[in-house]
Design a protein around this nucleic acid. Structure first.
Length: 803
RNA sequence: GCGGAUGUGGUGGAAUUGGCAGACACGUCAGACUUAGGAUCUGAUGCCAACGCGUGCAGGUUCAAGUCCUGUCAUCCGCACCA
């Protein structure tokens, strides 16, 4: 009898072996075919690893191990995205420096990752908070600056009064701070922006050439939110001002009966002296500013607004005078902050017009505008030159032409995506390498002074007005202007957490390079990433930011591929045993360490892949995991059934070849659950047969290896196959042997199953039908009836239709 | 409101893309071995006493529908007054 499997000892033994033998270190042998597998590097939080991390990494872990056995030079790196607020908050709370907190957490994470036996290349670890790393983050920033993609603007920003930081739109969705969930307020602030909108079209176009899951592409497209329409200039009656608007429906221009501008629209300030009800407008503006973005978007139904007394617009087509309103359903941040309102064909304008008693003019036939706005297509009416056109596209085109001739408008494109607010008033981030000089203005830090290091501080409490803690460090702030030598001050804001993760995949290619972010040779060989897997929550922000940086680096010749990731997939969440999202507050979290202690790393790895479709969310279930434990134990105990004599029957051999085929294909399709199920099914049949040859056993062990590497390496050694498993080759199957010689088919009469039939797989229709009709049940069912139709689906079923 | 996804036994989930619904696993029941069983092994297990009925619900197409079409309900996740 085989000894009982001691998973703790065996797992430690092989982890040590892999470590000592550099088993998973990617080689620099560039004659070999490469495979670059990337998983999202973790934020090293104090809570340690989560089972979600295990699932996220296990997918490409299996693919990577398989690829190595297939002869690829695999790079499967790991690192730490270590800048960020939680660490800083821990530091504030405990008084331990963020550097120390980060280092402790990284040590903790590393040992946890190693315990699971992931085949990461530990020689390439990157840590975004190390000087030799963020030097290049700053370098990219300076390059962006040099190329006009960094600008400074004073605008209303999302400000979190609790965290005391300015947040991007992405970090403050729903009007709540992404970190502490407090309500966001709008605040005037001078901030740094990256001109990501400049790359909007390239980011959209690039999606055509990459292999991302369709819903990931869709989310990115929606995020970028390209729309085509027209800019139209409306004249004002009282002065020479042009009120410029953006519309996607220039075809409805004849139906414009009023205009609406955002409360923050500059025209109000400009003409405040000629506005009779300026007090009312000021009051309204203040009221709007107090509303959080959340409130502002919740009260969708109830439109508010104030008519401007003293500014009247002129519809450039009809030349009729129309009123101008201020209302907060128009946003300053999209388009021009002003709209032409077509109440007959836009539900928002309709609601507003009804409430304020404004004219509603139908210009598209098909609805009943006395009841509601009609947003469908139809024949143009009341529309001068457009009358009679029934096609929206034609109407738009005609109107654009008309606007062009009259010089009052032109075709335009807008994006929902906004420029990237690129600074935080926090300590634990990359310093922005900029100097403010009273003489020269904004001056970039020279490249040879990089990295601009984060000064050591004891107090990282943010300033009361949202200033960075760095502002309090005189030795950091005070400097000489690199350009004129005059006394100057450093920028004290730091970069957002997205910065470090926007290029880490490049650094993995050449992590120790001191001359460049990575050598050209390394990038030529490794890039692009062949397969990137991560969470669905990162497919817009992180994925778009990093694609933006990469495309920029491509444009300045720093990298050699237009797109960073050839393929992107996403895993589903692991839910708590109660089916709810895992969270500390719900108390339904599972600690991977406990699982490794009690069941072993192989069981943990196997279970997170077996629990359901990889891309789908699935609840954790302890007892279900035991099935995986049993399976591995049974594979171990199969040793006792190894025979020197005859092995598998013909049928079982066929099943094994089919299993090899299935596992091989399922891994590529991320159908890990069915791959494991197939191996379980094979084991069940082997157990029934009660015997297995050494070679057959070897194939099973190889097949299982990517999923459960420790037990399979051990078995390989125990069985004396020679060498170590990870230096062997992935098992192959013979297509001819996959075919079964006899198969069972169903016999239906009028679609109802009457019998099952075992027939030779090669049997032809006539033969099968003859056999089918010979069955007593079938014969009874068709007796005395007319056979209308006979269908034979090869290898599946027979259906006899009778009347 | 818009967009996306999902809905299958007591549970997690499978189903050559229109061809035997429920693979695999959990759980449950029975048996074996045991001082013992929360270990292991063997067998049974969609529902119904049965004719039969069964993939959220109602229709439709088809010899044949979990899969296609039309409508509808529910849940989850994004986005949200985007002009």
């Amino acid at each position: 009898m085989a000894e009982r499997y001691d998973f703790t000892a065996v797992e430690q033994k092989w982890q040590k072996y892999w470590d000592e033998h550099n088993t998973f270190v990617a080689t620099e042998d560039r004659s070999k075919k490469k495979f670059y597998a990337l998983v999202e590097f973790p934020y090293p939080s104090g809570a340690g690893m989560h089972v979600g991390h295990i699932k996220a990494y296990s997918g490409l872990e299996v693919v990577s191990r398989k690829r190595r056995l297939e002869g690829y030079n695999v790079m499967f790196p790991i690192g730490f995205d270590a800048y960020g607020l939680p660490t800083e908050n821990t530091a504030i709370k405990t008084g331990v420096h963020p550097r120390q907190v980060t280092d402790n957490n990284i040590v903790k994470f590393s040992s946890q990752l190693k315990r699971v036996g992931f085949s990461f290349d530990w020689t390439r670890v990157v840590d975004t908070t190390q000087e030799d790393y963020y030097k290049w983050t700053q370098w990219i920033f300076l390059k962006l600056y040099e190329n006009g993609l960094v600008f400074r603007d004073k605008t209303l920003v999302n400000y979190c009064p609790s965290c005391k930081v300015v947040l991007s739109n992405e970090d403050s969705q729903g009007g709540k701070c992404d970190i502490c969930h407090s309500d966001i307020v709008q605040k005037d602030k001078e901030v740094w922006y990256l001109r990501i909108t400049e790359y909007a079209d390239k980011l959209l176009e690039g999606l055509k050439d990459v292999d991302y899951l369709p819903n990931i592409k869709l989310q990115q497209e929606n995020w970028i939110g390209k729309s085509t329409g027209a800019f139209v200039n409306f004249s004002l009656k009282e002065n020479d001002e042009k009120l410029r608007i953006y519309t996607t429906r220039p075809d409805t221009l004849y139906g414009v009966t009023f205009m609406v501008i955002a409360p923050e629209h500059p025209i109000i300030e400009k003409y405040r002296d000629s506005i009779a009800n300026i007090d009312a407008l000021d009051a309204y503006k203040e009221e709007c500013a107090k509303k959080s973005e959340f409130e502002r978007t919740q009260l969708v139904k109830d439109k508010t607004g104030v008519k401007i007394e003293g500014l009247t617009a002129i519809n450039p087509i009809t030349e009729k005078e129309i009123p101008v309103y201020v209302a907060d359903y128009v946003m300053m941040g999209y388009g021009t902050g002003a709209i032409m309102a077509v109440p007959a064909h836009d539900t928002r304008d309709y609601d507003f017009a009804k409430k304020f008693g404004i004219d509603i003019i139908e210009v598209i036939k098909g609805g009943d505008i006395s009841k509601e706005a009609y947003t469908g297509d139809g024949e143009m009416v009341n529309s001068g030159v457009l009358n009679g056109i029934t096609n929206k596209k034609d109407a738009i085109e005609k109107m654009l032409e008309f606007l062009g001739e009259k010089g009052i408008g032109e075709k335009g494109v807008q994006y929902k995506m906004k420029d990237w607010a690129f600074n935080r008033q926090r300590y634990w981030g990359e310093p922005i390498p900029i100097v403010h000089c009273p003489e020269c203005g904004i001056v970039p830090v020279p490249y040879d002074e990089l990295p601009l290091t984060l000064p050591p501080v004891d107090n990282f409490q943010p300033g009361s007005d949202g200033e960075s803690p760095l502002a309090k460090i005189d030795s950091f702030v005070n400097c000489k202007c690199p350009k004129c030598g005059h006394d100057a001050k450093r920028e004290t804001d730091t970069m957002p957490q997205w910065a470090g993760s926007s290029w880490y995949f490049l650094r993995y290619c050449d992590p120790k390079n001191t001359e460049a972010l990575a050598s050209k040779e390394a990038l030529d060989y490794w890039m692009p990433v062949d397969w990137y897997n991560g969470g669905m929550e990162h497919v817009t922000r992180h994925l778009i930011y990093s694609r933006f940086w990469h495309k920029f680096l491509y444009d300045i010749g720093a990298v050699n591929t237009e797109e960073p990731y050839a393929k992107r997939t996403a895993q589903g969440l692991i839910l708590g045993p109660d089916g709810e999202k895992m969270s500390k507050s719900r108390g339904n979290t599972i600690d991977p360490n406990d699982v490794v202690d009690n069941y072993g790393a192989d069981v943990l790895r196997l279970y997170v892949l077996f629990m359901g479709d990889y891309e789908q969310a699935a609840p954790w279930n302890d007892s279900s995991m035991k099935g995986c434990k049993r399976f591995l134990d049974r594979v171990w105990n199969l040793q006792d059934k190894v025979t020197d004599g005859e092995g598998f029957s013909k049928e079982l051999t066929s099943l094994m070849h089919r299993t090899i085929k299935k596992v091989t294909e399922d891994i590529e399709a991320m159908k890990f659950n069915t791959a494991i199920a197939a191996m379980m099914g094979l084991l069940n049949e082997i157990d029934k047969a009660g015997k297995i040859t050494r070679e057959e056993y070897r194939a099973l062990i190889m097949l299982l290896n990517p999923f459960a590497p420790h037990i399979t390496e051990e078995l390989y050694q125990v069985m004396n196959y020679g060498g170590v498993l990870n230096e062997q080759s992935w098992p192959t199957y013979e297509e001819a042997l996959c075919a079964e010689s006899t198969i069972e088919i169903a016999v239906q009469v009028n679609g109802k199953i009457k019998a099952k039939l075992n027939i030779p797989a090669a049997a032809e229709q006539d033969e099968v039908l003859k056999l089918a009709k010979a069955d007593s049940e079938v014969a009874a069912a068709i007796d005395g009836k007319n056979i209308v139709k006979e269908i034979y689906v090869k290898g599946r079923l027979v259906n006899i239709v009778v009347k």
